[in-house]
Design a protein around this nucleic acid. Structure first.
Lengths: 343, 343
DNA sequence: TCGGATTACGCAAACGATTGCATTTAAATA
DNA sequence: TATTTAAATGCAATCGTTTGCGTAATCCGA
């Protein structure tokens, strides 16, 4: 044993007076080693707590076998949806014998580039990523595919790249939710969405719009706002309720925003859901904590994560052809609770 | 370039008619290579998008330099406190040039052992871990230290090992919180805690007990319950309130449990905080979502994560001696909100 | 013009494993 | 007993880097 370092095959070979090759074969149960020797070597290895050096193994195999580390880039960590996704990825990965290497982009383009660099250097076998908000150049992603590292996008996909992706069915999720509001008697439904340059925001808006049309209603621009967080919601909602013809329902792009609305609306003395209905999107921790509990669209982050990991691993293992762009859509589910009326 | 694989130094050397050694030195800006050659090689490398194979680098350096991957074991991922910790670890690690490898133990001993094995094989330079609930044997941890892999515990520490650790000041946090309840007029304060075989549970209970003593009150066993989740809280709280002398305040071991209490107490018609005060522990998402908002002890997961990563990296880099067991305590902070009266 | 100091490079041995091929040894066959 | 054959092992190259040491080539001053 060199220093206090790990025991290597060389050590075993020396101590037992055989060659390294023999040790290697014995430990991999090769039949070309005699039973006695094989057992002796295996026992010695066990007793001396030998375990192979993966670095060396990988170097040797780098031509044929990729590593078993999956890079995961998340915009945020302390976030219900993203930690659900991480959870799904971890579950799928570990059950198939992969490790995950996690990095947080903090929604920053520069950081995203750094991370890609680091992951490339660390020889991850593939990367699962949700693009940072301010990313508008894609060279770092292109370098990855050029280097033969499969890429799977989730949540915020890269429009410029025809890569594999898994997204949530934002359109149908919103359409169903807004339909529910209409069918329970809401007439003027406000929409709080994110900035429209993100696909996901656009899809949700379209779902909202089409739900109105489907029910013969018209779109009132004054009811549509860009607002995707609680602080903004608390700031702009009072003015909404002061309109001469205020909304009798709100659809918010996430639970956090919905909670902001709920807080204000309750403070103003409206009864939820009788006078004002509210629907969120996520179904995270918050949804069952507020009073009344929040009706919301379940986003199924864990499922998104699992699908993403499944695609990536299939790409890595060749079950899916390397140049294939697999696109999956995870169905949402409307969870009815106390902030909307029930039919 | 071999196949569609990565460009190696060997390729550069061949194409430029120099030796691999020269390429290596040129790329590392060694002064022993002439300027022209150095620049030519660097340019060629840049143009052909060369990047070093970290696997090989590491193998070469394995004697002296450890890897730069930190293993992190968390019991759960979709969990405010743990994701905060992960966030802190990620921040500290990435700012110091380390990657993190994350695995979820799911509170299972078997899984924990598997993970340790996998991480050992993957040559992480150290491991940050919160023990799973049902772990009672510690051989897997001992093997790690025997293999020279530094270990840092957080949250649930391993009592059998004198390892580095960072914990939250559960005792003082609880003592202060309960003191606050007393000082705002509460007389009968119930305590919902976790099973006492965990240090963290015991410390919080002691804080509760000592706060009572400090204020000249006595401990009423009928007010102490083992309960650390919402479902249980909703189940047992009605009975508590039906006691002939019901509590006028609750201290809960986490926010989730506190929310359960709040829900029941409100449903039973009590006014919070006037008739019943409630205090939680965590200060996660939930705390500002419920109505009234929750007074709670801020657990500062991000700080815990940062400290843990700092210790581990210091251990790895030798700033702290390898056999040193660094023990840090992160101070908590009482956050006053609507579920308790204010002085 | 020559010896010694630079300068600029190559050789080859590591790091820890795997594996095709050669070689030894023992057993089986003629 | 000589020869074939199978079983058991070793040799050495390989994966992509790094680095100590050796050695041409160049330069300097005397």
């Amino acid at each position: 044993m060199n220093d206090n370092q790990h025991l290597t095959m060389k050590d075993i070979a020396r101590d037992l007076g055989v060659s390294v090759a023999t040790v290697s074969r014995a430990l991999s149960d090769s039949p070309s080693i005699s039973r006695e020797r094989r057992q002796a070597i295996q026992q010695y290895a066990r007793e001396h707590n030998y375990f192979p050096n993966v670095i060396a193994e990988q170097l040797r195999h780098s031509k044929r076998n990729p590593s078993r580390a999956i890079g995961v880039i998340v915009p945020e960590l302390v976030h219900y949806y993203f930690s659900s996704i991480l959870d799904g990825i971890e579950a799928e990965a570990s059950s198939r014998g992969y490790q995950i290497m996690v990095a947080k982009s903090n929604e920053s383009y520069e950081r995203e580039v750094e991370i890609c660099e680091a992951m490339l250097k660390n020889k991850v076998c593939g990367i699962i990523v949700s693009q940072a908000k301010d990313t508008e150049k894609y060279d770092h992603f292109k370098r990855l595919v050029a280097a033969g590292v499969p890429l799977v996008f989730y949540d915020r996909i890269c429009p410029a790249l025809n890569a594999s992706r898994v997204v949530v069915d934002d359109y149908m999720g919103t359409l169903n939710a807004v339909s529910h509001l209409i069918e329970t008697g809401c007439q003027r439904i406000a929409f709080y969405g994110a900035s429209m340059n993100m696909m996901i925001a656009k899809n949700r808006f379209n779902g909202y719009r089409d739900a109105l049309y489907k029910h013969g209603m018209t779109l009132d621009e004054s009811l549509v706002r860009i607002c995707d967080n609680r602080a903004d919601a608390e700031r702009i909602t009072p003015a909404m309720m002061r309109m001469e013809n205020p909304p009798d329902a709100f659809f918010a792009v996430n639970d956090e925003t919905a909670i902001g609305i709920l807080t204000v609306v309750k403070r103003l003395g409206y009864i939820v859901p009788d006078e004002v209905s509210i629907c969120g999107f996520t179904n995270g921790f918050r949804a069952t904590v507020c009073d009344p509990m929040l009706t919301t669209v379940e986003q199924r982050g864990t499922q998104v994560g699992k699908e993403a990991a499944d695609i990536l691993i299939s790409l890595v293992e060749g079950t899916l052809p390397a140049d294939h762009a697999e696109k999956r859509i995870v169905k949402t589910r409307l969870v009815l609770r106390g902030t909307t009326r029930h039919p």
